[in-house]
């Protein structure tokens, strides 16, 4: 679907800005609800993520001693802006991306990494011991999943012969679902996305039973709220990218909802299925298995072309 929207509307309301924020909270709710249902619980009501954010925004923000205040306030904004910007290059809600240029895939991926990077820096910025350990883990994890995730998304890009998201999307719509032709890449990308979002079982950077909230321990109020929304938007963008690349593209909003919803169901199931991995297990698994699989597929694709 392709509707021309004035740039300001695209930026502030749809598919950027407001739409992203609200859709992000809806996806967070759906994720929590699904995990709850998988665990035979009832789960939160639909407004819970919004209520959480509103409550956090209303709360006092405590700036701990010994932090750089500019970084402390700035990093959450950077994280949120990064993910919001990334959303402009993906076929959000089944619409054509608001902005598109050759190579925007790479830009999007880096913008998505900004989130974790900011989190890591935010943790390293404080003197709190839990934050420091969490930051170390978050950054370690960033380096371990980034490469496989990138490679897994390059698979469809190579098949489509373009590094422009809209082209890959268009290619995917006209061909077989790439989850069938490139199942390995799909798997690696899915797990990579979960690692990126620090969803269980890859949540050791913020394992609450070990290091409280990891890098986020010292955040309260607004900063924490921004990080949370940023994460929600990142979930949305990640799912959109995956659906566009591997699930036959996103031609219209209905397809968007169905495909990302289906993906969310799978990620929620994976979240509830496993015991948290230790950081050494996460990293080991990635470098030993994830990257090898992704590489193998990449070579195969490059060879077949």
């Amino acid at each position: 679907m392709n509707i021309e929207l004035p740039p300001l509307v695209a930026l502030l309301f749809f598919p950027g800005g407001l739409f992203l924020l609200s859709a992000g909270t809806v996806y967070e709710w759906a994720d929590r609800k699904l995990v709850a249902r998988f665990q035979n619980r009832i789960g939160p009501r639909w407004f819970q993520p919004v209520a959480d954010v509103v409550k956090l925004l209303a709360k006092e923000e405590i700036v701990p001693d010994g932090v750089n205040p500019v970084l402390f306030h700035g990093l959450p904004v950077v994280a949120l802006v990064g993910t919001l910007t990334a959303a402009l290059y993906v076929p959000m809600a089944g619409m054509a991306p608001s902005y598109s240029f050759t190579g925007d895939l790479i830009v999007t991926l880096y913008l998505l990494s900004l989130m974790t990077l900011s989190m890591g820096l935010a943790g390293a910025n404080t003197l709190d011991r839990f934050s420091l350990i969490g930051a170390t883990r978050a950054l370690t994890q960033l380096f371990s999943y980034e490469a496989p995730f990138l490679m897994a998304l390059l698979g469809p890009a190579i098949a489509a012969g373009s590094w422009q998201i809209s082209h890959v999307d268009a290619y995917a719509q006209g061909h077989w679902w790439m989850v069938l032709t490139q199942p390995v890449g799909f798997l690696v990308a899915l797990v990579g996305l979960m690692g990126k979002l620090e969803l269980p079982p890859f949540d050791s950077p913020e394992a609450e039973t070990e290091i409280v909230a990891g890098p986020m321990t010292e955040y309260s109020g607004r900063g924490w709220a921004l990080f949370r929304i940023g994460r929600d938007v990142e979930l949305l963008v990640g799912l959109t990218l995956m659906a566009a690349f591997y699930l036959g593209g996103l031609a219209n909003p209905i397809e968007f909802v169905l495909k990302t919803g289906g993906l969310l169901l799978v990620t929620a199931a994976l979240q509830s299925l496993f015991c948290r991995l230790r950081i050494d297990q996460t990293v080991g698994m990635w470098w030993r298995i994830g990257i090898l699989l992704a590489l193998a597929q990449l070579f195969l694709l490059a060879f077949m072309r």
């Binding site: 998988f38 665990q39 035979n40 619980r41 269980p200 079982p201 949540d203 050791s204 394992a207 039973t209 509830s272 299925l273 496993f274 015991c275 948290r276």
Partner: peptide, 16 residues
């Protein structure tokens, strides 16, 4: 114990 290890599903089911 499952919860401490981050296996919340086992936690929920055993408590159920």
């Amino acid at each position: 114990a499952a919860h401490e290890g981050g296996f919340d599903t086992l936690f929920m089911y055993s408590w159920r």
